[in-house]
């Protein structure tokens, strides 16, 4: 019994075991078509210079319950908006964008910053993401980071 720590003790009480399905947040599923619409809408905003509107839109519509494809598409949309804003503004101006967001939107922004940092396209723009991250934490403190770690509504 040298490896007693590795015994799966939950296997002995299967009926009480909390399943993964029970931890899925109780929210309606987001269809792929909706995310595509958001993506197009945000591009329209960006091309007409409505940066704040684009940012608020993509942060208001995270697909929490959906398939991987949908989540990935939305991540790319958010990334596009973040790049576009940064490329058209100074670093110092990012702060005013973040201040115009609600607390909920700031939380979602941090979730996407972490997610995009893990992607290959995000890694190439690491400096840009860190600019955003620094400014969010400056405005909102550590709360959104904790919520990113604890939230079951993953992006």
């Amino acid at each position: 019994m040298s490896d007693w720590r590795r015994i799966d003790i939950d296997a002995y009480e299967p009926d009480k075991f909390l399943s993964k399905e029970e931890l899925v947040p109780d929210l309606p599923e987001t269809p792929y078509s909706e995310i595509q619409k958001v993506s197009q809408q945000s591009r329209t905003y960006l091309s007409s210079g409505k940066f704040s509107e684009a940012l608020a839109l993509v942060l208001d519509t995270p697909p929490y319950v959906s398939d991987e494809q949908t989540k990935e598409t939305h991540t790319e949309t958010v990334f596009e908006v973040l790049c576009s804003i940064r490329n058209n503004h100074q670093v110092g101006e990012l702060k005013s964008f973040i201040q115009s967001l609600t607390l909920d939107q700031q939380d979602v922004l941090v979730k996407y910053l972490y997610k995009t940092m893990g992607k290959s396209y995000g890694a190439k723009q690491g400096g840009l993401l860190l600019n955003w991250f620094e400014k969010v934490v400056e405005v909102s403190g550590e709360g959104p980071i904790v919520r990113y770690l604890a939230d079951r509504r993953t992006v």
């Binding site: 931890l23 947040p25 919520r147 604890a150 939230d151 079951r152 509504r153």
Partner: peptide, 8 residues
């Protein structure tokens, strides 16, 4: 009750 994040 479950809070919106569903955290511990």
């Amino acid at each position: 009750f479950v809070s919106e994040t569903g955290a511990w």
